[in-house]
Amino acid sequence: MSLLTVNHLSHHYHSKADYTIALDNINFTLEHGEFVSILGPSGCGKTTLLSIVAGLIKPTKGTISLVEEDPSYKIPQMGYMLQQDYLFPWKSIKDNVLLGPKISKRLNEESTKRALEILKEVGLDNIADAYPDELSGGMRQRAALARTLINDPKLLLLDEPFSALDFQTKLRLEDFVSQMLKQYEKAALLVTHDISEAIAMSDRIILLKARPGKIKQVFTVNEELRHLPPFQTRQHPSFPSIFDAIWKEMSALEQEEPN
């Protein structure tokens, strides 16, 4: 059985004067350990889709199902990483990472030890007591990753987590996140408007069109690229051909837009 099944999902936003169809009949599945990207122009409903998958918004229509091993499991099974780190500025890095255990009332010696271990994994163990404003953008995003990993989620939801970073930091963090996900055997759903990033990171790419957000096409990244770290994927000889294929589809979408 698939880890995540998204079934006939639609979502409307209502305002007094008008309504927006943010998502229109979205269907896809995500397997254990798989990395899937949702690619599309800004405003096509990517954030809405992730918020629905995370259970933060109730969809107007359709269902989301996530395999559950143990229904008594109280801890959220999905970790959410946003465009910016949203670390709480008044909490130290360690206390930020410990938010998950604190919220699910598992704050004890063991979870504190676990927090320090994860901080070591992301290379921040020496600044566990520092505050977010003392860290660089890349370090802050790694701390945010540690905060999601401590709950040991089965699925990571990534909402353009690299888009606010400078290019070098972004490339380094892509490799880092990709390696962490492989190591912990996590599945991930990444949302992005960056074609290269989608190819570099994913096994499958779902292309969305905007207004209303609808699946246009699904691309499967070939076997040889999938196993490479993102940075090497970007330099692989077969990278440009898949890039061109997606680029053409995306450009066609823009021409379709009735402006």
């Binding site: 918020s51 995370a54 933060l56 109280k74 801890i75 959220p76 999905m78 970790g79 959410y80 946003l82 949203y86 938010l99 998950g100 919220i103 699910s104 905060r147 999601t148 709950n151 939801l157």
Partner: peptide
């Protein structure tokens, strides 16, 4: 959003 995703 961050807090709710952690189950708050």
């Amino acid at each position: 959003k961050v807090l709710k995703s952690l189950g708050a």
